[in-house]
């Protein structure tokens, strides 16, 4: 039964899936191919995907960056900021989620509700008061406002990891307790490994959100030698003069590469995490 059914359904679905995926990719393909087109051609002949003449100059021109700061600097900055942020976010959120998912304590509902509530706050509004706080701490024009807060947990990830942790049976905890484990050991040896897919997913999200974030860098980084890639990309298009679309698109394509690479690497863990896991299937 299993063999015949799984072969028939997928074929029709597979074709559909494939066609759909190409459609999904079209804008991205457009972007990649445009990075090899001459500036004048990019929008003039937007229908044609392939360049009439393959030019690699956009990459060199784009890489040059602005006013003596090349994209080497911008990429370095982005990496530093985003890596620290990701590590801080995932670890602290897992730690905190464990507290919400497994501990009972007075006021737990209140703090949980608090956390959900902060998710609904538009970042744009506490932007200015937050800036004032950071400025009082002396952190403006450093990477600190963009990295340190992540070590105190990110509500989105906490919420997500709580849900993941809740689907792990309590019997495992109890078994470990009987074996003499304390709460931290339960966290470390049982919960954390079983939440691995969640952790990896959180890591991927943390990475690319922060990679793309430009409001944070915009506010807190005034010196071009600290700029991240996301900020530098915005600077390519100026409404008052001609924009270097070719350069911008080329650099945008380049900025995609780290994110995709990270994704590929962590993708394996999502699958591995479960099959190597323990209890479930």
């Amino acid at each position: 039964m299993t063999l015949t059914k799984t072969k028939l359904l997928p074929i029709a679905a597979q074709v559909l899936l494939f066609a759909f995926s190409i459609l999904m990719l079209y804008p991205v393909l457009w972007m990649v191919f445009s990075s090899f087109k001459d500036n004048s051609e990019i929008f003039a002949k937007s229908f044609s995907l392939f360049p009439t003449e393959w030019k690699f100059g956009n990459y060199a021109a784009g890489w040059k960056g602005f006013g003596s700061y090349t994209f080497a600097t911008f990429f370095k900055n982005s990496f530093i900021v985003v890596l620290i942020y990701t590590v801080g976010a995932v670890l602290s959120s897992a730690f905190i989620a464990y507290g919400f998912a497994r501990m009972e304590f007075a006021g737990k509902k209140f703090w949980f509700a608090c956390m959900i509530a902060t998710l609904m706050l538009p970042q744009e509004v506490i932007m200015v008061p937050q800036y004032i706080v950071f400025q009082w701490l002396g952190w403006v024009n450093t990477f600190l406002p963009l990295t340190v807060p992540s070590f105190f947990g990110i509500p989105f990830f906490i919420f997500m990891l709580v849900q993941f942790m809740r689907s792990i049976p309590a019997e495992l905890d109890n078994a470990a307790k009987i074996d003499g484990c304390n709460s931290f050991m339960i966290f470390y040896r049982i919960i954390l490994p079983l939440t691995l897919p969640g952790l990896m997913t959180a890591a991927i999200f943390a990475f690319y959100w922060h990679w793309q974030d430009f409001i944070g860098p915009l506010l807190y980084l005034s010196r071009p030698d600290l700029y991240t890639v996301s900020l530098a990309l915005k600077m390519f298009s100026d409404p008052d003069t001609s924009s270097n679309w070719g350069g911008m698109i080329a650099m945008s394509v380049l900025s995609l590469v780290p994110v995709i690479v990270i994704f590929f690497c962590f993708q394996r863990y999502i699958v591995e995490g479960i099959t190597a896991g323990g209890v479930k299937g």
């Binding site: 602005f66 006013g67 430009f214 915009l218 506010l219 005034s222 010196r223 071009p224 900020l231 915005k234 600077m235 390519f236 298009s237 100026d238 409404p239 008052d240």
Partner: peptide, 14 residues
């Protein structure tokens, strides 16, 4: 002289 330059978008916000 420490340069602080950006595109026009967001300049005045900052």
């Amino acid at each position: 002289i420490v340069p602080e330059f950006s595109g026009f978008d967001g300049y005045f916000d900052k």
